[in-house]
Nucleic acid binder design. Structure first.
Length: 663
DNA sequence: GTTCTAGAAC
DNA sequence: GTTCTAGAAC
């Protein structure tokens, strides 16, 4: 900070001796204004009063007039005063500046900390006096910062201090804490580095437009004179459709007119879509679909029928679309953020921690989707974009990360064609030669069990490391030393990496039965036999140790190929249980109890499955008392001691298997 | 599925 | 500084 080495002057300095001080704090929610006041008041020898509009009315929010009255009263009593409100606009400050008439010193302390810090603090806090916290805080902070006007001496301040980071704040704190009743501070402006910077510089650099609001207009006229933008040119690559997230809307305005109105060359625009990927709704989604014309709806349908939170889908825009012709937009990336609306799927029910994770996933999906369009353009000759537009799967195929971006869950009807499948198959390292480009042939006919690692399922590709159980199931005699029991339809073996004191697998030997998704009514008898075999072994273990409790079930989406039933003791006392996925695959709805699977297959012909990603999103909760824990070590130390009864749902329908003495 | 490890979080 | 997670590689 540019302040003098020793800021304080003893009585007789520039300021006038003994005058009370009014300090107007300025800063966004979360900038630390209240903390600043509290720290000074706690440690200063000078009498201070904090005037806070959020609490001035007997602890409740009050009016500006009440603030002014209370401030004037305190000043007349010889106390100094902090005005603890945002005070970001000069108009808001003007009324308080009238206090200067009361023969007091007017100071401003500007807590001009990075926007993202203020946002994260205000989102996380849970005890804010003005109840500005949680999800709504981010929008409020961004909106307030857009209107920020830094204070000037001409407004009537005798001293202004700007704090741009934590150490500036600490230095200013020290100055005010050390200020005795009769001390004064030098007049002037201190610490200002970046006058009136409302927008994060990084964003401006990203857009290569350092002074946008003023020259956007002139660029607009230039844009209108020139020919439509080149389809393959990537200049300002991507613009965010959701206005309250960044300051981009200040710059770009209407996302559907970035070129014609804003002079920005954006080939790819992001749309904060709805889960059905339909036009309509309000705001950005409706505007983009409307500007793009029916071509976008058609192209979107070709890519996906719906989208779950955190995912994105890249839609190439036909060259006939008005948005393509007049704005040069070649792709729209639909992206779906977290949902707090109980009337829509995947409602998070106020869980902002999960919400933040999904938001992060959404941004990652968006940027990876964008990357896939850039990679495609790099590999293809100029002018070939239109061709790509008619074959969207080529675009996806060029990105090695494509399957991750589009998060291919079984319930998302993503269209695939041969090219895309081929690219996907390359992910199976060590086996691509076997599968090769004939994947569609092997898919079309019945799978050759020995050569095709894609298995009998039509929705999952298995890595080479995922074949171990399959190999055992097909050739049990080769592995007989490792097996507990071999029967005609299944084998029993210890899990190689047991996640509990006792953890065995009952492995189906039926070829083509890779996982639960492949199971149908014809396998009902097999499921029942596997269950009976699991029970037999659980009971055997219970004879050896009556304190154990067993659960029998399947993973919704297993990592290892070949249907296998887990029989696992509920102590989870194992060095192999190391991460969140391990825990959540055995203790959440991802684990499908064998009894329930049998019932569902019997009644509906298929089992309900939970998707894989959800497992990693869920917090770590004790399987007995349901308490939440921050990490695996803490969870493990909790479960060693937790003796709470198991949740009621587990105690029903024979989901838990206990020793006869414990039932 | 595991192992390894960079780097985030504390 | 250590602990812990998460992604890549297998």
């Amino acid at each position: 900070m540019d302040t003098d080495v020793d800021d304080t002057c003893k009585a007789g300095g520039e300021g006038e001796k003994g005058k009370p001080i009014v300090v107007l704090l300025m800063g966004a929610p979360g900038s630390g204004k209240s903390t600043f006041c509290d720290q000074v008041i706690r440690s200063s020898a000078r009498p201070w009063v904090r005037i806070c509009q959020d609490t001035i009315n007997n602890g409740k929010s009050g009016t500006k007039v009440q603030c002014l009255k209370n401030a004037a009263r305190a000043l007349k009593e010889g106390k100094s005063v902090f005005i603890d409100r945002c005070n970001l606009e000069s108009e808001q400050r003007a009324d308080f500046m009238r206090l200067g008439a009361l023969q007091v010193e007017m100071h401003a302390v500007v807590l001009d900390l990075p926007a993202k810090l203020c946002v994260s603090r205000s989102v996380k806090r849970t005890d804010h006096e003005g109840n500005l916290q949680g999800g709504k805080a981010a929008a409020v902070v961004n909106s307030m910062l857009r209107k920020k006007e830094l204070p000037k001496l001409s407004e009537g301040f005798s001293r202004i201090v700007f704090c741009q980071n934590e150490s500036d704040v600490q230095a200013t704190l020290d100055t005010y804490i050390g200020l005795g009743a009769l001390d004064t501070l030098p007049h002037g402006c201190f610490g200002q580095k970046n006058p009136d910077a409302k927008v994060q510089l990084g964003i401006m650099k990203f857009l290569k437009k350092v002074d946008v609001p003023s020259n956007a207009r002139s660029n607009a006229s230039r844009g209108q004179d020139s020919a439509p933008p080149e389809a393959t040119e990537v200049k300002n690559p991507i613009c965010e459709g959701r206005e309250n997230i960044s300051s981009l809307s200040d710059i770009a305005g209407d996302i559907t007119r970035l070129h014609s109105r804003g002079g920005l060359h954006c080939n790819v625009i992001a749309n904060a879509a709805n889960w059905r990927l339909k036009p309509g709704g309000g705001g950005v989604n409706a505007a983009i679909f409307s500007a793009a014309g029916p071509a976008l709806e058609v192209a979107t349908k070709e890519q996906a029928k719906s989208l779950s939170p955190g995912n994105a889908v890249v839609v190439p825009l036909s060259s006939a679309s008005p948005l393509h012709i007049s704005e040069g937009v070649t792709h729209v990336i639909h992206v779906l953020g977290p949902n707090m609306n109980p009337n829509r799927p995947n409602c998070l029910d106020g869980d902002y921690v999960k919400g933040c994770k999904i938001l992060r996933m959404a941004y990652t999906s968006l940027f990876e989707g964008f990357l896939s369009t850039v990679r495609s353009q790099e590999k293809l000759p100029k002018g070939s974009i239109e061709k790509i537009g008619s074959k969207p799967s080529v675009l996806l195929g060029h990105s090695k990360d494509a399957p991750k971006i589009f998060s291919l869950k079984s319930d998302q009807k993503i269209k695939r064609d041969g090219v895309y499948e081929h690219e996907r198959s390359k992910k199976c390292k060590g086996s691509q030669n076997e599968v090769g480009s004939d994947i569609n042939v092997s898919r079309a006919g019945k799978v050759n069990a020995n050569n095709d690692n894609t298995g009998g399922s039509n929705s999952k590709v298995w890595g080479s490391w995922a074949q171990a159980l399959y190999n055992i199931a097909m050739h049990p005699q080769k592995h007989k030393d490792d097996l507990l029991e071999i029967a005609d339809d299944f084998v029993v073996l210890n899990d190689l990496y047991p996640k509990a004191k006792k953890h065995i697998l009952v492995l189906a030997r039926c070829d083509g039965l890779d996982h639960l998704a492949d199971v149908s009514k014809e396998h009902l008898q097999l499921l029942k036999m596997m269950h009976a075999m699991g029970l037999k072994w659980a009971e055997k273990f219970l004879l050896e140790d009556a304190s154990l409790v067993f659960r029998l079930g399947y993973h919704s989406v297993p990592s290892m190929r070949q249907l296998h039933l887990h029989v696992i003791s509920q102590d989870f006392d194992s060095k192999h249980l190391k991460n969140k996925k391990h825990w959540n695959t055995f203790t959440t709805a991802f684990f499908r109890d064998s009894v329930d699977v049998i019932e569902e297959i019997s009644n509906h012909g298929k089992a309900t499955l939970m998707d894989e990603e959800s497992v990693l999103l869920m917090e770590l909760r004790c399987h007995r008392c349901r308490s939440a824990h921050p990490n695996i070590p803490r969870l493990k130390s909790h479960i060693t001691n937790c003796r709470a009864p198991f949740p009621a749902s587990l105690l029903q329908n024979g989901r838990l298997v206990l020793a006869p003495s414990n039932t």
